[in-house]
Design a protein around this nucleic acid. Structure first.
Lengths: 182, 182
DNA sequence: TGGGTCATGTAACCTGTTACATGATTAG
DNA sequence: CTAATCATGTAACAGGTTACATGACCCA
């Protein structure tokens, strides 16, 4: 249940609400793990039932009341456990509706398929840009923490993304070339 | 609902049973789209309710009876529609429990993390080998069909996989180097 | 002053995963 | 002869997606 553990990981840095977690999640983990807002709330209450978290309800005027979650010892143990056991870890997963369609695109015209792959390229370029923005966020965090090493692993994940999109673009170019030669 | 459409795509080649579809799926699409056996059966019956498929029950001795599905005109239309509209297509998705853990691995020892990434490398190498096997399957299919172009797009998806794993290995090597320098 | 967006979430539905059932047949 | 695998699936549950709710505040 990686989503739960991602949330535990964030809550291990600081106590916070579902709303804030949702934002942090989207700022940091979102590129390699997506989570819906509603999913985050649901997982949080489940984790509270498990005893991994406790919550405190804060009454607010002007804003809806909120629930601040904090991780318990049992939650820390669970997080630790997840980090340290790699049985049942899905090391590699690839899932692409884009490729699924391409697979079945034999009947479509050459030109349609070329356009399709070109559209893909432009999505990759967009994604790269947004990763560059993440790069800036990482740099800011590192500075704020005063320790450039603090964000080392975060940075490596962003680099992964960067290399991934580069590879996708390279692949797309060679496919387009081959299609044009057909 | 890409799984439904993947199944439609396969059924567009030939009428067959859930059992056989499951096998074809795993041989061809599995590398970029996973489906559980049970999921395939469920989707098939839903698609029959939608009118995209019809089925015929074949009574067997020695083997459990089976249901042979065939695609209807309405199913063909649906498939065509899916292939030709890219609104709502998820062009890029990346999801990696491996990276999620790495993100939170600051507290772990340098050596543990190096080992972790090395394990990842070996999974990538395995995956590459299994893609090479797929390459052989593709070649056989092409020959069987007599037309090397028939499997062109299939081949391109396999090449994508190949380049992907290459990239992963390259990334892993640079990360390991950086970790060793820490 | 009317339409977004912020700050909180909840409900319903659809998809994916895990576990199980059963009677041949094949492998060791 | 016994255990695994084949050839069919079904059931239950967990995870992911889409749609909606509400009362402030901010912008044009």
């Amino acid at each position: 249940m990686p989503l739960k553990h991602g949330l535990l990981g964030l809550l291990n840095y600081q106590n916070t609400t579902g709303y804030e977690l949702n934002k942090s999640f989207k700022e940091s983990l979102n590129f390699f793990w997506k989570a819906q807002t509603s999913q985050i709330y649901r997982e949080l209450s489940k984790m509270e039932n498990e005893g991994w978290l406790v919550s405190e309800r804060i009454v607010q005027h002007k804003r809806p009341n909120k629930k601040v979650y904090s991780i318990t010892d049992s939650g820390k143990k669970e997080l630790d456990n997840w980090l340290n056991t790699n049985e049942s870890l899905e090391w590699i997963t690839l899932r692409s509706e884009f490729l699924l369609k391409l697979f079945f695109s034999d009947e479509k015209s050459k030109q349609e398929n070329i356009d399709y792959v070109k559209q893909y390229k432009s999505k990759c370029q967009e994604a790269m840009l947004s990763l560059e923005a993440t790069g800036a966020i990482i740099a800011k965090h590192s500075e704020a923490l005063g320790d450039p090493e603090k964000a080392f692993y975060w940075e490596q994940t962003a680099i992964f993304g960067y290399m991934y999109y580069e590879m996708c673009l390279k692949w797309a170019d060679t496919v387009i070339m081959k299609m044009e030669e057909k």
